[in-house]
Write a protein that binds this DNA or RNA. Structure first.
Length: 220
DNA sequence: CAGTCGATTCACT
DNA sequence: GTGAATCGACTGA
């Protein structure tokens, strides 16, 4: 018999800590996405930490902009961004206000509401792929820019909230380089996941955009 | 103001 | 394994 997940809400103080403490501690927690359709629940299995202005991999590295403003605000709020012209990704703001750190929610296991996720994730070949990747997770849970800045500590019933869930045994938590992050931010082992969980996304190194060959460029 | 590229995913070879 | 999709934010001139 396995224990049922603890349904105690995570308080804002949970997020008001250094991001490298919060990120691994989010594994096994229950993310609740409430919409007019009803609640969906997901067990977090993979996350990445982004350390704000000191982190070359972070959207906040070059300071505050219109897009990343939420990261500079209070902890416990959702930072949602739009990327590659078609995807959304969901983060939770951490640390002291102004530190601009956050945790990217990369993957999880849908515990409740899979029936509502499947139509949004037609390419998923099995339920374990519904939220296997950050944009897939956001798509499955219907997370869009309209949720940017939402308070995830406003209590159950809010569009986003977190419950205590069932944290993994400490020995099952793994860490490694962040997926798709290049440059000076690449070496940091700030991706955390639950070892052996089938919903964790595959690691992929940073892929620089293809540039035109010099030989194909017009010569002067 | 034009150029570049992204904390990705999917279809195809 | 490779390349396309697709657009807004950001950068630098």
């Amino acid at each position: 018999m396995s224990e049922s997940p603890d349904r105690t809400p995570l308080p804002r103080t949970f997020f008001d800590r250094p991001v490298l403490e919060v990120a691994p501690d989010l594994l096994g927690r229950t993310l609740v996405r409430t919409s007019p359709e009803g609640p969906m629940e997901l067990r977090l299995t993979e996350v990445e930490a982004y350390a704000g202005e000191i982190d070359p991999g972070s959207h906040a590295f070059r300071g505050r902009t219109a897009r990343n403003a939420v990261m500079f605000g209070p902890p416990g709020h959702a930072y949602v961004y739009f990327t590659y012209g078609m995807w959304h990704c969901l983060n939770l703001v951490c640390g002291p206000e102004g530190r601009a750190s956050g945790v990217l929610l990369r993957a999880g296991e849908i515990l409740e509401g899979a029936d509502r996720a499947r139509p949004r994730r037609r390419s998923a070949r099995s339920d374990r792929e519904l939220a296997k990747g950050p944009a897939r997770l956001a798509t499955a849970l219907d997370v869009k820019l309209s949720l940017n800045g939402t308070d995830a500590c406003a209590g159950p019933g809010a569009p986003l909230s977190l419950l205590t869930g069932t944290p993994p045994a400490p020995g099952l938590v793994r860490s490694g380089p962040r997926t798709g992050v290049g440059g000076d931010g690449a070496p940091h082992p700030w991706r955390f996941w639950i070892d052996g969980d089938p919903t964790v996304s595959p690691y992929r190194p940073h892929t620089p955009r293809k540039r035109p060959l010099d030989s194909d460029r017009p010569t002067a």
